Amino acid sequence: YLDGQKRFTSDIAHELCTPLARMQLSLGVLEQQAKPSPDTINDLRDEVQQMSSMVDELLDFSRAQMSPDKVELETIDLAIIAEEVVEREGATTATIDIKPGTKARANPHLLRRAVGNVVRNAMRHAQGKGILIHAISSADHVELMIDDSGPGIPEEHLPHIFEPFYRVDSARTREDGGIGLGLAIVGTCMEGCRGSASCENLPKQLGGGLRVLLSLPHP
């Protein structure tokens, strides 16, 4: 536990130091200019936005880690949740194929956050291609599935993508954004809903891509 906390603190320090250093450099440039250039101001604004996104992501992760016994569950219509998330995220390439009345037990706030993070991840990697949101129901659980049309993930990374700060691509570019907590938040939200999250690559002969499975208790 202590090793995990130390690693967590180290990762946070590393992630926040990078944009801080860039901001300090930009401020130094501003101090030397009688009339700051628009490019310098825009660069500084981008760094502030990046840090703000990091803090928001950390707060989301912290909130999602609340004790499951303090999370209230209710019966939720999955089609309605999917529609709300798709509209909120502007996922214009997403198709929802969930039978009306397909329900599960979950906390609506945590489930929306989990589905939203998965959809954003799918949009980023599908690069404008289709996203499919569908569900299957069994006697004891319901699986909500989000399929993208991206390149998928190397098999050796699949068991780890819901771990905090884990990134398949170690090259951290400003365009990628985030600090590797998006899918960790998904996993933690699902635990709060008494469910689980997993993923698998789709067969290449069917077009490939990644499928994220959110398993929830049956009503």
Rank of each mutant, 00 (worst) to 15 (best):
D3C: 00
V168Q: 04
S62W: 07
A184Y: 06
C199F: 11
S138T: 15
L132A: 11
E200V: 10
L25C: 03
P38H: 09
G101L: 07
P203I: 07
E15W: 11
E87Q: 04
M145R: 14
L78F: 14
K35W: 11
V118K: 05
D43R: 14
L214P: 09
S198E: 10
E191N: 13
K204Y: 00
H109R: 12
A94L: 05
F61P: 00
L16C: 01
K129S: 14
E163W: 13
Q205F: 09
K6M: 13
H218F: 07
E31Y: 13
K129V: 02
D97W: 12
Q24G: 00
I81Y: 01
M23I: 14
I136N: 11
K35V: 13
A13F: 07
F162W: 08
E47C: 07
I98D: 01
L25W: 11
L25K: 13
T92S: 14
V85I: 15
H134E: 12
L58V: 01
H160G: 03
G195L: 02
V168W: 10
I185S: 11
E74L: 05
N107V: 06
H218P: 00
E72P: 00
H109D: 07
G4D: 10
E156M: 11
T102N: 03
A34Q: 14
E15F: 13
G192T: 04
G28I: 05
L73S: 07
L144N: 02
G207K: 08
A79Q: 15
V115E: 03
V115A: 08
H125N: 09
I12C: 09
V118F: 09
N201R: 09
P100C: 11
G182M: 02
P100H: 07
G150F: 07
K129M: 09
M145H: 04
A91C: 08
D11L: 11
A139P: 00
T75L: 11
I153S: 06
N107C: 15
I81V: 15
S196W: 03
S196T: 03
Q49V: 02
L144K: 04
M66S: 08
R211D: 08
T95Q: 15
M123T: 00
H157Y: 13
N117V: 02
I179G: 11
I76Y: 03
Q5K: 12
K204M: 10
H134W: 15
G182W: 08
P108C: 08
L206S: 13
Y166W: 05
N117T: 03
V71E: 02
G177V: 13
D169M: 09
F61K: 02
K70C: 04
K70N: 12
M123I: 08
L20Y: 09
H218S: 13
S137L: 03
G207L: 09
L2K: 10
A197M: 06
P68G: 01
H141T: 03
Y166T: 04
A184T: 05
N201F: 03
G128E: 10
A139K: 15
S26L: 15
T40S: 08
G187Y: 05
L59Y: 04
S198P: 00
P217R: 09
A122R: 02
M23N: 04
G101F: 12
T75R: 15
M54H: 13
L206I: 00
P159C: 06
L2A: 12
D43T: 10
L111W: 01
D147N: 12
